[in-house]
Design a protein around this nucleic acid. Structure first.
Lengths: 199, 199
DNA sequence: GTCTATAACTAGATAGAC
DNA sequence: GTCTATCTAGTTATAGAC
């Protein structure tokens, strides 16, 4: 992504696709928002599908990178999970248009692109699955089905990009903290923990 | 929904919209799947948007009805939450095409329809918000922000309609049980509970 | 690198025969 | 109640001027 024009098209596409969906967005409206005429887009991207794929690929690559880095700093499964979830949430609030599109438009990808992005999504989920596996072995976590717990966890956190707004009442850090608390302790666990702690 | 033909179009539309999205689905393909010619659809529905609205309205009404009934049987907040979540999950697996569309195509609704469905969604979320509020007051639940917890909870459970398949390895009842466990206790809470119980 | 013009096609919806 | 034929408008993408 060298030229600034290409970046503008990329960002405006993410915003437009988020608002109206990939199939509900026309190349003309995208061009209009990016400040050029319809045909000019094809100098920067070979097709509308090409733009969608760029958004998806960039997002998955960014997520993989950020979460792997966050996890690498830690050794305990609990700290790894906290860091991973925070990184996931930060990315989903900072680049919320792109992550929303990456999450909602899987079905709009053509076959080859779909295969590639699905592979990256699988690698991404694997990071979380591995952490929970470690947590079970270390005895600090307890779930019946790791795959199910991973899906549930990610769906809950990904959902933030559906409603989060930077103008909202709560700063990102607080939202992330509360999601971590919910994931670790649920709506009841904190009571049991206080009993266990004798507080 | 009197005629069987209308029901067929309704069901096929839910399936098609789920697969390709509202804007990615053509009236002709829908007609084809429902076993009639393009123009014939307009004898049963006045427009494509009308079909989408029917799916959304029917789904929200069904969810409201089912979850309210489930909650009405119980008095304790904990049992209410369990029943409500199970009802939500059951509905999302039984009518997974409709619930998927109802969840994913909000942005494809025209203004007046959007307002109506958003109102129903608000009422639906209110049921869960009220239960958690009761739980806090009764002292059997503990969360920092009820609104945030409600959103997180529903997003996690709604996500089931994105991956659930009736041919899958796990029966619905088991999936629902494990989601309830996760929501109540998180990935760590069950350890603390065992300590508290002295087991 | 951006423009205008347009080709080739597909969309939702309607009209009138049966 | 379903068909066929068709209208109008919008779609992605390309071509060639500047």
């Amino acid at each position: 992504m060298t030229s600034t024009r290409k970046i503008t098209i990329f960002k405006e596409a993410a915003r437009l696709f988020r608002e109206k969906g990939y199939n509900g967005s026309s190349q003309r409206e995208l061009a209009d928002r990016a400040g050029l005429q319809g045909g000019s887009i094809y100098h920067h991207f070979s097709s509308k599908q090409d733009i969608l794929y760029a958004i998806m690929e960039d997002t998955m690559r960014g997520l993989l990178h950020k979460v792997r880095r966050a996890v690498a700093e830690e050794t305990s499964p609990l700290e790894k999970l906290k860091k991973a979830v925070r990184a996931h949430i930060e990315y989903h609030t900072e680049d919320r248009d792109e992550t929303y599109v990456a999450d909602a438009e899987l079905r709009s990808l053509e076959e080859a692109n779909y295969q590639q992005i699905t592979r990256m999504r699988h690698d991404y989920e694997q990071i979380f699955r591995d952490i929970i596996d470690e947590g079970l072995q270390a005895g600090c976590m307890k779930v019946d089905d790791v795959l199910l717990a991973t899906k549930a966890l990610l769906q809950m956190c990904t959902g933030i990009s559906y409603w989060y707004s930077p103008e909202g009442r709560k700063p990102i850090g607080e939202i992330a903290d509360q999601y971590v608390e919910l994931l670790l302790w649920g709506v009841c666990g904190k009571m049991a923990r206080e009993v266990a702690d004798g507080s």
